[in-house]
Amino acid sequence: MKLILVGQFIAAHGIKGEVKVKSFTEDPLALGDYKIVQDESGSNKYNLKIIGENKGALIAKVRGIADRNAAEALVRTKPKLYVTRDQLPELKNGRYYVEDLKGFSAVSDKGKMIATLTDIHNFGAGDILVLQPIEGKEFMLPFKEPYAGDLNIKKRSIRIMIPHGWLADEKPPKPEKEAAEKSNKKKTKAEK
């Protein structure tokens, strides 16, 4: 079953068995909404109750952990916390989990498959699709019209438009100073 990483135990906190947890969810406190989280192997399951925040981390109480020693033993290996895909809440229309979109086929206007969607990034300038073409290097496109749109969940496809020259190799322009110096040198040589 597909596991989704939602947090990680960082350290023990206090003497009553509380632990510090780093949350990776969009809303950090949403980690507390999952009744059961598990480690990567699935052999250890934890019932978390978020009781506060401290320096960007959450303070949580784990069922069955009652003292500092038990808490330290729990966080020794800093286990990562996962939930299964089924545990994630349903989203409103038009909103999707990135995990669900991975593997979609990127098709042209005419329906020809061009690439596979491998990931979606956001570096502060909008969502970016990472696409792996059938042949050639990986490339990126902004996730907005007219470059991408028409998500088809049933067909698992997305329409993309590759702008003219986007995949072509180009060399950076020469800096203005260097270019000016070179032209000056040529001129002096020609004069000699």
């Binding site: 597909k2 596991l3 989704i4 990483l5 939602v6 990776f24 969810t25 969009e26 949403a30 996962y82 994630l88 989203l91 038009g94 909103r95 999707y96 989990y97 990135v98 995990e99 979109l101 990931d119 979606i120 990034h121 956001n122 570096f123 969502d127 996730f143 907005k144 019209e145 991408a148 749109g149 998500l151």
Partner: peptide
Amino acid sequence: IFVAHGGTEKKTEEK
């Protein structure tokens, strides 16, 4: 290199 937390609960909105 951007190392994403493999499977972070990220959501995206269709434009």
